[in-house]
Every structure is written in C-alpha cells, then in structure tokens.
Design a protein around this nucleic acid. Structure first.
Lengths: 346, 346
DNA sequence: TCTTGATATGATAACGTTGTCAATTGGGTG
DNA sequence: CACCCAATTGACAACGTTATCATATCAAGA
C-alpha cells in the first residue's frame, strides 16, 4: 500500500508538498502540482483515513442519533442523509441511544459525554423526539459539535440548523380541506405526547376548526402512539361514539392505516361513510386501499439538507467564537389528496 | 482530554502497562490492574479511536453494502446489524454502491478497490442482489476482509458466512397450504430476475404444484420487480385471464399488496373470490386490509447474525492462511396465515 | 547592489495508540 | 549460592498523516 512518503519520493518532492497538493493548499507551483497528481495516479495512492483522522482530530463521520432506525419515517431521512454524506466522502453512522435518555437528563448527559469522546463525531443529526429536546442540543453545542435538527419543536432555542416544515399550518390546511368538503365532526388522533409534532398538528387542527366556527369537541380527540395499533384503537373508539365523526385526521400515516382497518372492521365504506387523512406520506399511503390522503413531508430532503449543512460546518476550522447562527430551513409540504377522503353525504 | 500517557503518570506505571490493562492482555499484576482502572475512572479517560485505528490498522467499522437503504426489507436487516455492531463498539455504516456495479464487473472491481483502500472496513455485509454475486464476495476475500452474505443464492461458493432461510422450501410450503385449501389455479408473481430469491421461490412454487400433480401453466406466472406497482400490474393481468386463478402467490409482500389493490379495483372480495399470499412478513403485511398471509423471514436476526460474525472475525488476527470455512446459518422461517387467504369456494 | 517581503519548499515534530524487544523480578531447582 | 525459566514491566519505535517553523528562492523597490 503506497503512502504519502512513497508518492513524495516518486515525485521528487517533500512530504509536505504532497500533503499541500492533496489538500488543495496554496503555495505550490503548478508544475509540482501536476507531477504530484501524476505520481498519485501512477502509484494508486489512497490517503489513510485513520492517519488523517488522528492528526487532524476529525473523523469524517456524521451520526444520525435515534432510538430506533426502523420505520419509513426515519428510514427515508437516513437515506437522504446517507446520499449527501457519501457524496462528500463522509460516513453516516446510525447510532442508537438508550431509551432512558429521554426522561433522565443525567443519563442523557452521561451518554452524550461517552459518545462524544469515543466517537468524536464531526456532526450529529437529531430526529424527533430528541430534536425537540433543548438539552441534548445544548450538550453538543458545548462540545462544539455541529448539530442539525429535523422537525424540532422550538426553532429559536439553539444554534443548530433546523430542517422542518410548518406542521401547524399543514395540519390546518388539511383540516380546512375536510371542512370545505362538508365535514363538521372531525376526529383527531394524537401522537406520542412528548413529540412536539403531536402538539403542532393538533394546534393546526384546532386553528382550522376555530376559524370555521366549529367548537372543539374533546370526545373527538383520542390519544395515540404514532403506531398502527394505536390508530386502530383510536379509530374504534371514535367510530363507536354516539355521534361518530364523518372524518378522522390522524397525526401520522401509520395511525391513519389503523383507523382505516378499524373502519373496515365495522363494515364502514371509505370514503363514503368515513373520510380518513394521515400525515407524512409514508410508503404505506399508496399501498393501502383506499389510498390515503395525507400531507407530504420532504423526508429525503430533510436528511440531505441536514447532512449537507454538517459537512459544510465540519470543513471549517472549529472556532469557539464562530458559533453557528440560528438557521432554519422551512421546507415545502404538500397536501396529497387520494382516495380515502370524500365529501360528506347528507 | 486525558490520554493514555496521563493515565500512566497518574497511576505511576508505564504507557504499555496501561495499554495492556485496557486490552485485557495478560502479564499484569492484579494490584496494578486495579490502580490503572482507578486512574482511568478518575481521569475520565476514553481511548482515542483514531489513534487505535491508525496503529492497529483497523477501523472498528462494518459496512452494509447496498444500492439503496430504503424499504422495510433492508431497513430491518440494518436495524439488526446495527444493534449487534453497537453492542460490540463497532460502527455500522450503510454504504451505497453505484448501480452499474451490478452489470459491469469492471466497474464493480474499481468501486471495491477504492472502497477498500479508503474505508478499510473490518467487515462487510452483502444483501440481495449483491449477495448473489460470486465476484464481489471474491474481491473482498482476496483483500482478506470478512464477508457476511444475507440470503445468497449459492451457499457453497465462498468462504463467507451465509445467513438465510430455505426459500425454496418455504415457497413450497406456502403453495402447499393453498393447494390444501382447494386452490388449483394458483398464480405466481416473480421478482427481479437477477435476484436469486426470485428463482428459489418460483422453484418452490413449482415443486408444490408438481407434487400435487398440477401442471405449471405459464399464463399464471407473471414477471414483477418486487415493487408495489409491478404487483398491481401483474395482479391485473392475472385477474383478467379467461381462466383467472383463485389464489395468487407474490414473491414478496410489496407485490402482494399490489395484487390486493388490483383485486379491489375489480371489485373482487378477498379472500372469498381471490386468495393472496406474499413473502417476507414486512411491516405492510399487518397494516393492510385484509391482513396478508405471508412467510416470515427473520430479518432482524439476519442482520444481527451477520454483524456478530464479522465482529468475531475482525477481532482475530488476519492471517492469509486462516480463511473462514464455508459456514451457513440456515434460520427458521414461519408461514403466517392472516386474513388474505381462504378456501376455494365451489 | 542591497533590502524587503512574499512565495515556495522541506525538515521535523506531533497526534495517541499498539507492537517489539530488552530488562527486571521472583521462585523453584541443582 | 548459582542457575534458569517464566512472569512482569517499561523504553522506544512505528503507524501515516497534518502542523509548525525555518529556510530557500525570487521579484520588486530603494
């Protein structure tokens, strides 16, 4: 395996000159530059990442921090992040943190400390629900590690970059769509309570009802866990009400799929007797029958932008003074109307 | 940041002794061992991965090599691999290879060479369709990099470890299930042709028909791409036949979901008029209506075992002579009967 | 011609580990 | 008491880069 020293000897220059050429540093004659490049090619030289990492105190590694990488949501984000990271020669490493880190700040701090010293990430990507937590973001900031947060709740609190959509507005719009189609009794299925998205989407739902002069009926709001099963449970509860809703808005697609199944089990026709909308536009939305109306989040772009930002930051010299300003990428969402929604029949 | 040297000074021993203690090497007095551990704890020392990597010529990194990480199949495998890797302190890095590497051996070799020299993987996990290719496996073997293959076609060809189920037998069993329930015209939707699984499952389907004395009707076999859309197309084609099948076996769940939707579009009742089975037991299978009968592959276990094996291999000293013997982990599959299959009605 | 300052180049140190090998110690044996 | 083998310990080199600093070169100005 050829090293930089071999290349230097072959090209008749010093080690440092080769280093300069390969790192695009100035102060090298074009003639020597050429010669070095030729030697590199000729010897099939590939730099040693390990050596570079050690000396430069970097790892060329971004970490996607999450409790679980299963599921369409995180999977798609990861895919976007991976593409961007790989394009710039970075590794993207999914990293699982223990569940107790969500409830115990102490456990979180301990985990982060060990993680940082051991892995020396060049950047981290936080996804819900951890992107909602100010503390974890703060810990990484103090360690001077760039952070990208996806779908965070409070976009002002940190000097990370936030990549998100306007959940509340999207939820409002999709609720308005239902109202426009004659629905007045609209059920809502919440997500996990410590996910900010649960509250933002619920708020949007309320906004639309309020503006339409429809009172918020607590009976029409059911808890959920963002899971298919919890969607089934909530759907069943809503459909068994004395005054059942004519439409149900679930805070994500998995739960909406559960609602649809609960409707099938009651032999209700969708969308003739009950309209259903979800949120995310996951893989599932197009694969079920009837296909699901939903809100498309640009998940791939979330991942791409989050990673690209980190690469940009990591490339620069770390400087205690030079903190990142708050920066928020507010991406476009899109209401996707498919076959699971219809007009209310009088 | 405390280094090993600091720990050595603090404990009043040499650098090497600390190293020995931390690497669980013999030839250190218990007394000193204790002292070193105390100093490590006291100083909050964490070893530098970069330095260790450089010196030991390892990276503590496993790569999951694939064209695309999206989709339930690869996502679940990755999850299993990640858990196992992280448990042993390894990074799991998903790595995308260019699509042309499948058709061009030259491109594949070039890609692998650069990948190996640059990333110095401690082990690689190959998934379909690349796990079916003898060449890629051979390249890594020559570079002395341990390989785990998931669901490979030919389990004898290499000195990798293979983690798989008996696809053919599973496909046969599920077809037999349909036959037992009175089906004699059973459609089959193939997958991508250069995936070994496509052929293995088709062979199992044929085995069952042959043993039952049912001739194989070419009209009942349709091509597919393992995608939902291709399942819809194939389902439509099958259901429009003059002599339509009473059951359809799709080579994976995504296509089975497509078949189900194509049946809905023809107003057919499932399973009363048409039974559908898939393969994989993906997330989707339980979320659609009617829930899908299928074959469960232990995807999480695939990933876990593949990664665990690599960690075990990477730990040992690389030795040209000491090649891995062919080793195949044949895991258990399970036929899952849900609501999409029923008896044929006369 | 002599400075001067900018540009170009290289010698050498440094990063924090692990590997090699020599030195020291200790306990049993002749 | 001398001897030997094994266990213990440490000094130092090595991994392949990047960073620091000194030196060499050169064009322009005095």
């Amino acid at each position: 395996m050829a090293t930089m020293k071999d290349v230097a000897t072959h090209a008749g220059v010093s080690l440092k000159t080769v280093s300069r050429v390969l790192n695009n540093e100035p102060h090298v004659q074009d003639k020597l530059r050429q010669k070095v490049f030729e030697s590199v090619k000729e010897m099939g030289y590939v730099p040693s990442t390990s050596a570079r990492n050690l000396r430069s105190n970097r790892t060329y590694t971004l970490h996607l921090i999450t409790e679980n990488i299963e599921g369409n949501f995180i999977n798609t984000i990861q895919s976007g992040a991976l593409r961007a990271a790989q394009k710039f020669g970075y590794n993207l490493v999914p990293t699982l943190l223990a569940e107790e880190t969500l409830s115990s700040p102490k456990a979180l701090k301990a985990w982060c400390k060990e993680f940082i010293t051991q892995k020396k990430p060049d950047g981290v990507i936080l996804v819900p629900p951890h992107s909602d937590q100010p503390l974890i973001n703060q810990i990484f900031n103090q360690a001077n590690i760039p952070v990208s947060r996806i779908g965070p709740n409070d976009i002002e609190i940190s000097d990370s970059v936030n990549v998100t959509i306007d959940d509340r507005k999207a939820a409002k719009e999709v609720t308005e769509y239902l109202i426009r189609h004659g629905h007045r009794r609209i059920g809502f299925v919440r997500g996990i309570e410590f996910h900010g998205a649960t509250h933002r989407r619920y708020d949007g739902y309320c906004d639309a009802l309020r503006e339409a002069g429809i009172g918020i009926d607590e009976n029409l709001v059911k808890p959920g866990q963002f899971s298919f099963e919890s969607g089934m449970t909530a759907g069943k509860a809503l459909l068994e009400l004395d005054q059942a809703p004519t439409a149900i808005f679930a805070a994500n697609d998995d739960m909406a799929a559960g609602v649809i199944v609960s409707a099938y089990m009651k032999n209700l026709k969708i969308p003739e007797q009950i309209s259903v909308v979800g949120f995310d536009d996951s893989e599932l939305a197009e694969r079920i029958w009837p296909s699901l109306s939903t809100v498309r989040q640009p998940l791939l772009t979330y991942g791409e932008q989050a990673a690209e930002f980190l690469v940009g930051r990591a490339g620069k010299h770390r400087n205690e003074q030079d903190k990142t300003p708050v920066q928020t990428e507010l991406l476009e969402y899109k209401i996707i109307i498919r076959a699971s929604t219809g007009s209310v029949s009088h």
